[in-house]
Simulated scan of single mutants.
Amino acid sequence: MQRSDGPRMSRWLGVCLGLLFVVGCGQPTTTGDSVEEASVDSPIVRTRPRARVAAGGEHSLSVRPNGTVWAVGSNAYGQLGNGSTTSSTVPVQVQGVTGATAVASGNDHSLAVMADGTVRAWGGNRFGQLGTGTTTASSTPVQVQGLTGAVAVVAGDEWSLALRFDGTVWAWGNNHYGQLGTGTTTASSTPVQVQGLSGITAVAAGTDHALAVKPDGTVWAWGNAYVSMFTSTTPVQVQGLTGAVDVAAGTLFSLVVRSDGTVWAWGYNADGGELGDATKSGRTTPAAVQGLTGVTAVAAGQDHALALRSDGTVWTWGNNDAGQRGDGTPARQLLPVAVQGMSGVSTVAAAPSHSLALRYDGTVWAWGANFAGQLGGV
């Protein structure tokens, strides 16, 4: 999730135009990996199901039933965690990680929550996003310093976020736009507590902004909000939104699932129609994504989005320049359409230009850009 200082990212996109649609024109394809979905039940907070798959800038991660983590795709910064910097088009095992329960992927770094509540990190570390107290990259997992009781992790553009069992949120890494939520723009190579948040039940990280859900169903945001030219270094409440149960953050847009199964979106909208409201106009306040009901989870890429419905189908909208929507067409889609051939899905994940789905049968399916092999052996 590499940031550029302009309104749209450059390196985080990572799409080589000469390689568009080489992967079945965006048709979902199995990665050959197999994982098992699980839910988390902590003493204080109950979060959404743990993320057993994760899509990074140019790599993908999955957790297998035995707690091992497997990675595929680009490895220039060691983000595959196998002790090398050689990319792989087939899944390789992350070294020394057993008992993992959840994963997250940034642009060039990776995270895993362990069963004991500690967090492991590997890959790029330019801004301290590995949480080790240094800015030295690591091609094998290292423990994030001073963090225990973690139940979920998410990753932004060279920064990381963790939700603890007590409902507090902790962040580390790049802080150019205040995305660490500490009231400053100073980067940190070790976890620092996000100010003013407690009892949090779900978190999401975009390129340079973050979202959190409180038990009362309100949503709080901090970091960069380009569409309104507004930046906050501490969490502020998203206005006009209640009943939230799940959140996702893209490059410059945000998504929320409400308890009634509807999806609401706000932010940038000009590139792909990522707000799903039949327009290409950005907005600073949430509005419903049209035609979606029964949604249980969402995922956000650079300028496309995914929604998982309770019937196990996946719906998508926004840009499709690399086939990341998975509906078999190259055109921009301003309203949700079904991802072809996807049913029985339990989890979805989105990267800048590729997407992942975990099915209840334990198989992982991928579609979109594949120039670094991030689709896993297609």
Rank of each mutant, 00 (worst) to 15 (best):
V378Q: 14
A350P: 03
R332G: 03
V257E: 00
V151Y: 01
A225W: 11
T190Q: 14
L180D: 07
L19P: 05
R46H: 12
G328F: 08
W317T: 02
V40T: 14
N82S: 05
S39E: 15
H109S: 08
G26T: 11
Q237P: 08
C16Q: 13
L375F: 01
A265Q: 01
V97M: 13
V314Y: 00
A187C: 04
A55T: 00
T251C: 11
Q290E: 12
T251E: 14
G131V: 07
G123H: 05
D166N: 13
Q324G: 10
S42E: 14
V219L: 06
G78W: 01
A202K: 09
G106H: 02
A225N: 13
G282F: 04
G217K: 07
W170M: 15
G78R: 07
W222Y: 13
A71I: 10
S254T: 07
Q129W: 03
R359C: 00
Q340V: 09
G272C: 12
K280R: 14
P330V: 15
S60Q: 08
Q290V: 15
N269I: 12
G32I: 14
S160G: 03
Q340R: 05
T140F: 04
V142M: 04
T134I: 07
T262Y: 00
A288V: 12
V348H: 04
R46D: 12
Q195E: 15
A244I: 04
T136R: 06
R52K: 13
V247W: 02
T285S: 09
S87H: 08
T185Y: 02
T134Y: 05
